[in-house]
Design a protein around this nucleic acid. Sequence first.
DNA 1: CCAAACTATAACATCATGTTATGCGAATAA
DNA 2: TTATTCGCATAACATGATGTTATAGTTTGG
Lengths: 288, 288
Amino acid sequence: MAVISNGSVTAAAADLGISQPAASRLLSDLTKGLNFQLFDKRDGRLVPTQETRILQPDIERVLELMGQISDISKDITNRQVGHIRMACLPGFATSHLPRVVADFLKERPGVRMTIEPDRPERILEWMIGEQYDFGITDDFVGHPAVESSDLDIRTVCVFPSGDPLESLDSITPRDLSERRFIQPHRDSAFHRRLSRVFSDAQVSWQTHIEVRQFTAACELVCHGAGVAIVSEFDARKYETLGLSYRKFAPALPHTLSLVRPILKKPSLVTLEFMEHFRESLSPYLLNT
Amino acid sequence: MAVISNGSVTAAAADLGISQPAASRLLSDLTKGLNFQLFDKRDGRLVPTQETRILQPDIERVLELMGQISDISKDITNRQVGHIRMACLPGFATSHLPRVVADFLKERPGVRMTIEPDRPERILEWMIGEQYDFGITDDFVGHPAVESSDLDIRTVCVFPSGDPLESLDSITPRDLSERRFIQPHRDSAFHRRLSRVFSDAQVSWQTHIEVRQFTAACELVCHGAGVAIVSEFDARKYETLGLSYRKFAPALPHTLSLVRPILKKPSLVTLEFMEHFRESLSPYLLNT
DNA sequence: CCAAACTATAACATCATGTTATGCGAATAA
DNA sequence: TTATTCGCATAACATGATGTTATAGTTTGG
């Protein structure tokens, strides 16, 4: 093809970055293997035979495809292609994740992503079954087939704007003793931790409403149903919607777990996205 | 691809007909060049990574196309593909050639053929201009850019069936002295040769009708317009249509020329077809 | 006829790719 | 647990493909 497009062996050799004799012999070797002439000599130059012209379009296609393959593999090393299948808690799918994902995909036109929100137990199953590349869950207790890394998210106390609590710098269980309290779900680890904190402070909390999600809690607080302890980034989202928040003391983490199947090797993009996601949460991490 | 489809390096090596270490190192060399893993080890076996799966369809396509190329080049050496552009006298295009071509193409599904019938001068132009691969013409006088080989076709005397001439074994000019004679065109070499024969025999021939083509002459003879000297294979075609023919003495050749551009290298199929065509005429050749 | 351009060949260097021999780790059976 | 088997990786080496430089033969154009 180089000889055809460059018009001579000498030019082809230059184009290919090899010496003229090298090109010359490559050509003669190829001809030997084919049992028919590839070029005719004509006025000292080489012109493709009819046979060669028959093969030409197919060969061009192969070269083009090989170029494509080379491009794709470059994209792979640049983490520009791939498919990430992730599972997450329903809260994430609607609040924090979309921005992170959009941000990540903006620079990576070839990367596809599947996001499946569900309950933690289901997420765990998916990890064990290797149906997903990674997941975001909480209350993760460990499993031999799952690799996990925890993130301690800062939590704050949220209350309606204008509430007297606003005058405080940080809020303690004692400050909430008379308040209607919107609690996390009783099965959750966060519930247990919170109740421990209250009992340590010898403050009894009124069982009032139990919700699974921080966003639901925020909504309820918005509507004056009481106060709640939620993750800081949920709280921040509701700041413009009539909520205020203050630091809660003692600092109480809400522990998220980034999980992935331990045996399944993560793709390069997946690793990169996990790192990207972790960083997106760094402003909200509890610095122990 | 061999590793993927065979499930293991060992099996792939066997499939490729190389040793296992060779396959093993081919794989590691390829990986080195790509900067990302192609396979993961899993229970001692190799499973393709997500990255590899992305490349897989393109690679399959390349391999398939390369197989095609190999097939085509095999077809080329077997003279199974190609394009023959030929020019011929109008008489051939309708009478002898179709069968020869059909016969030739029957065994060669990939070969295409273009047949262009025209006058000899035009055919000559096409040869010089290298627009056709070869041509069949007559009255060819030679040209530096054209290579030619002559074929002397046997000619016979045709007359309507039942004519007294049928009793003769061979016909001489003298036998035709009183006959209306359908002559070849006065510009043709055959005309000159024929008139020479008649004058040598001191037989004057009546100028009656002049035609360019043997088939036209045969048609005229059919309709009782006279007798004619035509090529044997034209005569034979009219045997069932009311004509008889006998040897003409002295044996007079009708000289056809197979011509082709001298500089343009003929394709393998073209050479083969020319040979095929020559053979198709061998039963009609004048054995000097 | 000479100079320039192009191709082919020779002689040699180097690297990719093949070989055999062997070791290592994981799965399997005793 | 231990021995065995299986699959892969590595070492050491052979060889052919592919590169190099040097050089000679052809053809073209002035």
